[in-house]
Simulated scan of single mutants.
Amino acid sequence: MARLISHRPAPPAADPGIAEEFVAFNLVGQSEKFLNLLARIKKIAQCDAPVLLEGQTGTGKELAARAIHYLSDRRDFPFIPINCGALPDSLIENELFGHAKGAYTDAGQAQTGVVEQAQGGTLFLDEVDALTQKAQVTLLRFLQDQRYRPLGERVLKEADVRIIAVSNRPLEELVTQGLFRQDLLFRLNVLNASLPPLRERGDDAVILAREFMRRLRIRYDQPDKILHPSTLRWIRRYDWPGNVRELENFIHREFLLSEGRYLYAQPPDPARRERRRARPDRRRQVSFDLGFADAKGEVITNFEKTYLCWLMEECGGNVTLAAMRAGKERRAIGKLLKKHGIDKKKYHRAG
């Protein structure tokens, strides 16, 4: 058996021409890993079964999901995304299945859930790894037979949707840690694909940078700009922890700020990654066991911390500029920074 396995033929290399088919979906690259991913996406699109896409943040998982949808027989029906990380337990059934008029206080009219909105098409579950245990049970029950009951109604409805779930973390590891249900993983992981980080995609970073510049030239009606050789060198060397999204944001900013024909750019500040890691987790769940006032206060505190960290990073620690951007008095921003223990000096840019 071992000899048979060791002599198993390697899968054929993907046709480089397949890349042209995916440019319309904003999936751009020529590396072997990326071309193999595109070939897998194309094959998955033809199989009407649940799909699990895994990969680091910023690798293009939603773009891949949309490509699967629009290459499938469901292309003429809706693609409905829902962010699982923003779904509290108290709203999960209402968001998924909707409610009838009068189902609860303030339900003055009926509302359809995302399952019904996606009928015939695709329901895209973003950040499925952020679902609570209760929400996982609700989703699992629906996936067993795609039948559901809107809140306040007595009759079961049957759905016809394809599920594409996305996770920033390996779900198998979460199962081992007791954070994700194994039976739900089995339901979601019928077909799967893993999106490689940008640092593993060879020269794709340069190809993407040039593609982003081409789009920006059209968008802002600007003359052509060229990446300076020194900029090309560090783009190839940099590990891009934020992947394609980080590269796109970086090129966007430098394209608008650069003067002349060449785009000269310095590598991102190494401390920027540490500041990003120090930000409060935007997917953090609210403690619903608290009273209303305490829960509301927790949400506001988390928002203020996250917003201030982002604001300081964008403004290089300049409080005056931050106040102008936020539309608040400088003194008010200063008080908020002090309240949350945020040191503006950590965000000052060298030079």
Rank of each mutant, 00 (worst) to 15 (best):
C84V: 01
A67Q: 01
T59E: 07
R75I: 03
D48L: 13
Q46P: 00
D76G: 11
R75K: 11
K43D: 03
T57E: 15
D76I: 09
I80F: 04
N83H: 14
I44N: 09
G58K: 04
L63F: 05
R75M: 05
G85T: 03
D48A: 13
E62W: 00
I44P: 02
A45S: 13
I41V: 15
P81H: 00
K43Y: 04
A45K: 05
L52P: 15
L52E: 00
I41P: 00
L71T: 01
D73A: 15
K43W: 09
A65F: 00
S72P: 12
I68Y: 01
I41W: 14
E62G: 03
G58V: 05
G55I: 00
R66G: 15
G58Y: 05
H69D: 01
G85A: 07
I82W: 01
Q56P: 05
I82S: 06
K42W: 05
I44T: 12
I68A: 06
Y70L: 14
P50W: 14
D76T: 14
H69K: 10
T59W: 06
P81C: 08
A67D: 02
A67H: 03
P50H: 08
N83T: 09
G60K: 02
F79S: 07
G60F: 01
L63Q: 09
Y70I: 08
A65L: 02
A67P: 01
P50I: 12
C84D: 12
Q46E: 09
A67T: 03
G85Q: 00
L53W: 03
A45Y: 00
K61I: 00
A64I: 10
Q46R: 15
K61S: 08
P81G: 11
C84R: 11
Q56C: 14
G60H: 04
G60L: 04
G55A: 08
I82P: 14
D76C: 12
G85L: 02
P78H: 03
L53S: 07
K61N: 10
K43L: 14
E54G: 13
I68T: 03
R74Y: 02
I41G: 04
G85D: 06
L71N: 11
Q46M: 12
R74N: 07
R75C: 03
P50M: 10
L53I: 15
F77I: 08
F79Q: 03
K43Q: 14
N83R: 02
R74H: 03
P78M: 09
A67L: 04
R74A: 14
I82A: 00
V51R: 08
V51C: 09
P81E: 11
E62T: 04
D76V: 11
L53C: 09
C47P: 00
L63A: 13
L63G: 07
Q56H: 13
C47T: 13
S72Q: 05
Y70V: 04
D76W: 10
L52M: 15
I80C: 06
R66W: 00
